[in-house]
Design a protein around this nucleic acid. Structure first.
Lengths: 224, 224
DNA sequence: TATTGTGAACCTGTTCACAGCA
DNA sequence: TGCTGTGAACAGGTTCACAATA
């Protein structure tokens, strides 16, 4: 008597959602190698997880495998792509076309995964003369018009930290509900807006912590 | 009778370690604003977490606050910096000087947080003519010599996916035990080597998943 | 009195181990 | 027989609520 959608189970755990793109990439790799069927063990190895976790994750989507055989690579690939929602194109704007913005604009992984960069924006008029990755760099003031015109669903912030909150506020006001933030700052946004952050210096500091602990000889911690 | 180190408690949970750099940044911001003391509530707000979590996290480091008063900003800042290990400089090499490698080499957050980029390496001889961020781009073959000479502790991989595993293998062989991987691929490394990955297209796909679910009207999931 | 530090309860995520099935 | 799918046990992380205390 449990209510279900016809085509996809609800309530996929967040940790599973974060791994689905990894599985998708692994499946694309297997398909390119000509593999048509794979076991949970093989796919898990390609994705860098253990097979129990993989099977548990896939079980939240449905039963797409065959007992005693494994998974059909193309079929599972399609099912995961549909679940993530990368079967339809998503429009992206990038704000802040410095070094990082350049790199993001030129990143080929966007196109190949259903994301289309429709505009590059920068507040600095000097940068607005440039053409990057085949797109004119436009004024940040055009944000609202561009979001409305292209039905933009994701905003990428690659500005300095000091500008990031203002950019986020403007994005939210313009109707964007998903933000990927590369600026090293905490963003405040209303409920219903998703923010994910990518923070280089935090990643380095986490590595530094573990590095520091490695250099201490094991057993040293016991003290009188 | 529990054994302890004199200067720092062991076994800090991984989730806490990942937040310490955020607290550190928040404290630096407060210090710049001239704040000398703050409550867990204030610091938590700056860091974008709730105060119970903040206090629990800090409790793993020791008792650095004063009941009824709060935390001394400078003192806590130093304690967290020491715990993370950013009080001593760490040497970094970046391999793969394309768009992203350029951006990383020019990123100012490195220096300000105790990380020093000592070399930029690329396998493409055409790129080895360049000077980026004041450093010559050198041949990837120089990796071992550079790691030995500068006591490099962290390697950053910003190459295409296809080259990343080879680069990681060479880094590990050269003695690097911490890797930050920007290439969209799963790296296999021996035990004792830490890898953290930053993957733009995975972040976008996670956002796309949530975006897709927002566009479905709530309550739609109940069927027949 | 105001705020920290923390046991206990709760929740989320992972792993185990095996029943179910092609 | 071999591999998936999953309940149950376990581990890790978060939140609550209050005792400890400057």
């Amino acid at each position: 008597m449990t209510a279900r959608t016809p085509d996809s189970a609800r309530d996929i755990p967040e940790a599973t959602v974060a791994r689905l793109p990894v599985y998708l990439r692994a499946l694309i790799g297997l398909a390119e190698d000509g593999t048509t069927t794979c076991s949970s063990e093989e796919l898990a190895a390609s994705a860098g997880v253990n097979s129990a976790k993989l099977r548990k994750d896939l079980s939240y989507l449905g039963s797409y495998g065959t007992r005693g055989v494994g998974y059909d690579v193309e079929y599972l690939r399609y099912q995961i792509a549909r679940e993530i929602g990368v079967t339809q194109d998503r429009r992206v704007v990038i704000v802040g076309i410095g070094n990082l913005g350049h790199a993001l604009a030129n990143y080929s992984g966007f196109r190949s995964r259903g994301f289309r960069v429709v505009a590059l924006l920068d507040a600095d008029p000097a940068r607005q003369a440039e053409v990057v990755a085949g797109l004119d760099v436009r004024s940040f003031d055009d944000l609202e018009a561009i979001v409305a015109e292209h039905d933009v669903s994701i905003g990428v912030i690659a500005t300095p930290a000091v500008a990031a909150q203002d950019v986020a506020d403007r994005m939210v006001a313009a109707g964007i509900t998903s933000i990927l933030n590369f600026a090293p700052t905490v963003l405040a946004v209303p409920d219903g807006v998703d923010v994910r952050k990518v923070d280089l210096s935090i990643e380095l500091q986490i590595l530094a912590y573990h590095e520091q602990r490695k250099s201490v000889a094991p057993g040293t911690e016991v003290v009188s």
